[in-house]
């Protein structure tokens, strides 16, 4: 991993980037209710990754929003009783390659959960009663449960409440 500090004006420089495929992300020291609106490398969308071919300097622009969507809700089991679960909001399409595009919450024993700072877009919501951490980043694992996901569209600044059935 290569990093470059961000100045208070938002500028950064990362040197010595060898040829290869990369993802970029921002690290911050205070919780911030933000999401990546766009990330472009030399004008081309780089949110789901990009390739560095040689030593030519490259220019990146990252636009952040602070009006992400919010989602809360309840997890129910197949007998419609509240259930604890790991709730995962999984992005659709190529953003599945980007772990930071997922949102994860733990539903409490009465099944309640909250997710915030969600980038606008289309998602599927899953609630697993028992799941290994980050198993959902494995495309093969997700394919097994794809049909159990609850489709959700999130808009800028929107708030929604949902009920989702737990996957045992």
């Amino acid at each position: 991993v290569l990093s470059g500090s961000v100045t208070n004006n938002g500028f950064f420089t990362i040197s010595g980037v060898l040829p290869g495929n990369y993802l970029a992300w921002i690290e911050y020291h205070e919780p911030a209710n933000i999401y990546v609106k766009s990330m472009r490398l030399d004008g081309v969308d780089a949110r789901d990754g990009f390739r560095i071919e040689g030593p030519s300097p490259r220019q990146m622009e990252i636009v952040l929003g602070d009006a992400g969507g919010a989602l809360d809700g309840a997890v129910l089991n197949d007998k419609l009783a509240p259930s604890a679960a790991t709730v995962v909001l999984v992005p659709n399409g190529s953003l599945r390659r980007r772990s930071t595009a997922y949102k994860v919450a733990v539903a409490d024993p009465v099944g309640r959960f909250q997710l915030q700072a969600i980038a606008p877009g289309d998602y599927k919501l899953f609630a697993w009663v028992d799941v290994e951490a980050n198993a959902w980043l494995d495309a093969e694992f997700l394919r097994t449960y794809e049909e159990r996901g609850f489709p959700i569209s999130v808009g800028e600044g929107t708030k929604a409440s949902v009920r989702v059935t737990a996957i045992p």
Partner: peptide, 26 residues
Amino acid sequence: GAEVSGRVITDNPDLLTRFDSVSLGG
């Protein structure tokens, strides 16, 4: 290697002081 430079842009300038770094990984 290449140099990747750029800028983080946000409507809320207060957010900029919370960022530590931009990172690249494979």
